[in-house]
Simulated assay, not measured.
Amino acid sequence: MAYTTINWNVDEDELDEYVFDKATAQYWLDTRVPVSNDILDWQHLSATERDVINKVVGGLALLDTLQSEEGVDVMRRDVRTRKEMAVINDFLMMESIHAKSYGTILTTLNDEQVVKDAFHWMNNNEQMQFKVKKINAVYQNGTGLQKKVASVFLEGILYYDNFFTPLWYRGNNKLANLSEIIKLVIRDESVHGTYLGYKFHQGFDELSEPEQKQFRKWMDNLLDELLENEFKFTDVVYGPIGLAEDVKQFVRYNANKAMQNMGFDSIFPNAELKDINPIVMNGINTETANHDFFSQVGAGYLMGNAEAMNDDDYDF
């Protein structure tokens, strides 16, 4: 059988090219966000506050490592269109940038031993290991629809426990550059979650009614297990600074959004936008942040100017 060329003039699903164009317009690199400008703010935080931030950033590094090495890659086996493959390839690259960016934050603000301690913590914490093992088990053994659910739950719910702290400090006018990276990641993950939720819904609609009921039972059980673990994690990490209940409400709100992305109703009736800590929402809305699916690169993020290539540039 001959291998055929992808034809970008053929629309198998009009959302594919739209998402590809928007996602590529949002390219960014951690090296272009001056996290070192936050060092003065960092030095004025208490040791407990710094420890919480290191743990949540370290946790994000572990989750995005899973996504960049396993989670996005397995999505390529179940694409519905050829352009979808291109979109997934873009997502994969950005997950690697996300994982690297958390290391940039940790190494910029901490000495070497603190960074080692943060990595040791994230690799051995009981709740962190539970969620990565639970999600990865679906990636390795689940159906195409199950993998999409696991990815939407990870990026659309579990990440947000760790996103809360940087946004809270930004809402208090602190750690502007650290939170800028987080906001750039959130913008990417909003695209990923919405797109995969849309693709999931297409496949889910093709199931028979009994199959849909059985699938929903599996999905609800997975979510219950993940949320029970997540709230334990929240108590452990955020208890020392008194924000655990606010974080749980933030997670519930984003759980509703994740379910809506997949075509389902909200599961938490008392977790609406008005119920979120206003300081966190202020952190999202400050400066370049756009908590919006199709936002462009923020005005505070400057892409480098294009320069002509020289012969020396090819000497690797």
Rank of each mutant, 00 (worst) to 15 (best):
D220M: 13
M75D: 07
L154P: 11
V72E: 12
F250G: 02
N305L: 10
F200Q: 02
V236F: 13
Y27A: 06
A289F: 14
N177V: 06
D11H: 04
V251E: 10
D292Y: 13
L106T: 02
N125W: 00
P210I: 01
D90V: 12
F215K: 03
D161T: 15
M75L: 15
Q43G: 13
V251H: 07
Y160W: 12
P210F: 06
D311R: 10
Y169L: 14
Y238H: 04
E245H: 07
K199G: 05
M262S: 04
Q43N: 14
A86Y: 12
E228I: 15
V57Q: 06
T5H: 06
E126I: 13
K148R: 15
P278T: 09
Q214D: 14
Y169E: 00
W218S: 06
R76V: 07
I97H: 09
E17H: 10
E272M: 08
E230F: 08
M93Q: 13
T288D: 08
E126H: 14
I267T: 08
H120K: 04
A306I: 12
L40W: 01
K116D: 09
L63A: 14
F163V: 02
G197Q: 12
Q129G: 01
A289T: 05
E126Q: 09
K257L: 15
E126M: 08
L158E: 02
D275S: 05
N310L: 08
M94G: 03
G263V: 02
N277T: 04
K248N: 10
F264P: 05
A258R: 06
G239I: 00
E84S: 04
I186Q: 02
N261Q: 10
H201N: 15
V74W: 05
E189W: 02
E189K: 00
F268N: 08
N310P: 01
D313K: 04
L207W: 05
N123A: 10
D117K: 05
P210Q: 11
A255F: 03
N123L: 13
L92E: 03
W42C: 07
N290S: 07
T286F: 05
Q212M: 09
K183N: 11
V138S: 01
A258P: 09
H192G: 00
V297R: 05
G242C: 05
N285R: 13
F20K: 11
R80Y: 12
N290R: 11
N282V: 02
E272N: 14
L154K: 04
E245G: 05
Q146E: 15
M262L: 15
V236S: 06
L196I: 15
Q113M: 01
D41V: 05
V237L: 12
A99G: 06
N254W: 04
D205N: 15
T234R: 01
G71F: 09
S208T: 15
V79N: 11
Q260A: 02
L106I: 05
T31K: 13
T286G: 00
N7Y: 03
S46Q: 00
R76A: 14
R187C: 01
A271R: 06
D265H: 07
M122H: 14
Y198H: 12
T288H: 01
